[in-house]
């Protein structure tokens, strides 16, 4: 039984990790969901035993351990909440960036990086004010864009 559980958890974790490496953000979320399921499965596998529910056990009955059930349930609920939050974030990203590919996000970061580089350059050459104004422009454009999307 343990080996079956272990295999199932491993497959879940593996597929989750595979999906996590995909470019599409929705797939990334799916990957995280699978990994969370692997964790829940491990909780169950680690301490599952059959028996009477503990609310009324007779003297001869084997009670089943209620703790792993409570743990699994709690982990499921927490997983649900966090995945929902993540999905909401991905949705926001889709609205703002108009894509769910990670490349677009990376491009934003590269843009910021380039801006910083320009600023550093300006620093060295002691040109002031000009770049600062440019940066403010960029922020303003971003703001406007957000406002339009909303």
């Amino acid at each position: 039984m343990i080996i079956a559980f272990a295999l199932a958890a491993a497959v879940l974790f593996g597929s989750g990790a595979y999906l996590l490496l995909k470019r599409d953000l929705v797939r990334m979320v799916a990957g995280i969901m699978l990994i969370s399921q692997a964790a829940v499965l491990t909780i169950i596998a680690s301490s599952l035993n059959r028996g009477q529910a503990v609310i009324h056990v007779g003297p001869d009955d084997d009670p089943s351990d209620p703790l792993p059930q409570a743990l699994a349930l709690t982990a499921l609920v927490i997983g649900l909440a966090t995945v929902a939050l993540l999905l909401a974030m991905v949705h926001r990203v889709v609205v703002v960036f108009r894509t769910s590919e990670q490349d677009a996000l990376a491009a934003t970061e590269a843009e910021v990086e380039a801006r910083l580089e320009r600023k550093r350059q300006a620093d060295r050459e002691e040109v002031e004010g000009v770049e600062g104004a440019k940066e403010d422009d960029a922020e303003a454009i971003e703001h406007e864009e957000l406002g339009r999307v909303r």
Binding site: A84, L87, A88, H91, V94, V95
Partner: peptide, 13 residues
């Protein structure tokens, strides 16, 4: 709340 949030996606886009 989740249903509300995700149920409106298409319209908002």
């Amino acid at each position: 709340m989740l249903l509300h949030q995700f149920g409106r996606l298409r319209g908002e886009e």
